[in-house]
């Protein structure tokens, strides 16, 4: 078997602030194969976005990658010189952000921005670049792409803007796309459209997709594999069906229980007590243990990330072994 498109091994991204070292990402590992979707799930502050930024080499000081490897087709991106990284970023590896207004320059027309992106990595004429831009807009389902190319970002609705951002990410048919909460700001019917596009593109071009989200329900329908993050660490990973139907880690179980549709109408939701700890002074051992109903003295030691079922890992010393009731 050849190397997977993207393999993150024991990634550590730390921020060296005046208040101390914030371990935003602390030992994260996952693998994405071509044409597959990985759902990276976590609540705010769990480090999922910083993981995405690390893959693209977008972490700014005081943050830096403090350890681990990001293997893109066998090449380690974590130690790659910036000049080489520039050649990959936007070309072989692209990112889609939550807020499409952040990706698009408000004072430039869409065609200017897209042609610039094409010519940054490919030696083509302006006319050919425009042609490629037009094709990309067509691929993401924007009607009359020729006219829309001449529009400014503010002339698009939120859903259309996100489509443009996806089209820009697609210009060079990248091998990896990191999508950071791309549908969170969108309405339900528009979110459905974007998810449909994402599915189609993965299947069509064999793109490896990392879909970062806080919404387990989105990942359930979209992803092949799932990695659940808590306080900078992946606490559980595995195939979607296994993780969601038979979670090992108490946090995963708690997250699933918090989803309203998983509960009976009108009854109290199964909530997780307490809140996410501050990353500045994390307790030693399992970071979840202060909220965990199963915590025991042994949890004060850092739990190992162990494979409890084929393909399903968890960072817990007393995982749930039984399947959850639907």
């Amino acid at each position: 078997m050849s190397a997977p498109t993207l393999e993150v091994r024991n990634l550590k991204t730390h921020f060296f602030t005046r208040g101390g070292v914030v371990k935003a990402v602390d030992d994260v590992s996952f693998t994405v194969e071509a044409g597959k979707v990985l759902g990276l799930v976590g609540e705010s502050g769990s480090g999922k976005t910083v993981t995405g930024f690390s893959i693209l080499g977008l972490v700014d000081p005081p943050g830096r990658i403090a350890g681990g490897q990001i293997l893109f087709k066998g090449r380690d991106l974590a130690t790659l010189p910036e000049a080489e990284m520039r050649g990959l970023r936007g070309n072989r590896i692209a990112m889609i952000f939550q807020d499409p207004m952040m990706t698009l320059n408000p004072v430039l027309r869409i065609d200017t921005q897209m042609i610039e992106t094409v010519q940054a990595h490919a030696k083509v004429s302006r006319e050919e670049a425009r042609q490629r831009a037009r094709d990309a807009l067509g691929q993401v389902g924007i009607p009359s792409p020729d006219e829309r190319l001449k529009s400014y970002p503010h002339q698009f609705s939120g859903g259309m803007r996100q489509r443009v951002a996806i089209a820009i990410a697609l210009l060079h048919k990248p091998d990896v796309i990191v999508a950071d909460e791309p549908t969170t700001a969108l309405d339900v019917t528009i979110q459905g459209q974007i998810l449909a596009e994402a599915q189609k593109l993965c299947a069509q071009f064999g793109t490896a997709l990392v879909w970062i989200t806080h919404d387990l329900s989105v990942v359930a329908g979209l992803a092949d594999d799932i990695a659940v993050m808590y306080a900078g660490k992946v606490v559980e990973s595995g195939p979607v069906a296994q993780v969601l139907d038979a979670p090992l880690h108490p946090y995963t179980l708690g997250l699933i229980g918090s989803v309203p549709s998983r509960n009976h109408r009108g009854e109290p939701l199964r909530q997780i007590p307490g809140m996410t700890p501050s990353l500045l002074n994390l307790p030693a051992g399992c970071a979840f243990r202060s909220r965990c109903p199963r915590a025991e003295p042994g949890c004060a030691e850092p739990p190992p990330f162990a494979e409890y079922r084929p393909g399903q890992h968890a960072r817990c010393i007393h995982p749930h072994q039984e399947a959850v009731a639907a």
Binding site: M160, V188, G192, Q193, A196, S217, L222, D224
Partner: peptide, 24 residues
Amino acid sequence: KALLAEVPRIEARKRAFAGVKGEI
């Protein structure tokens, strides 16, 4: 009906998203 069909459900696995056509 369209709204209900588009709601991502945690029970649904590898479903095909279809999407209501058009914009609001």
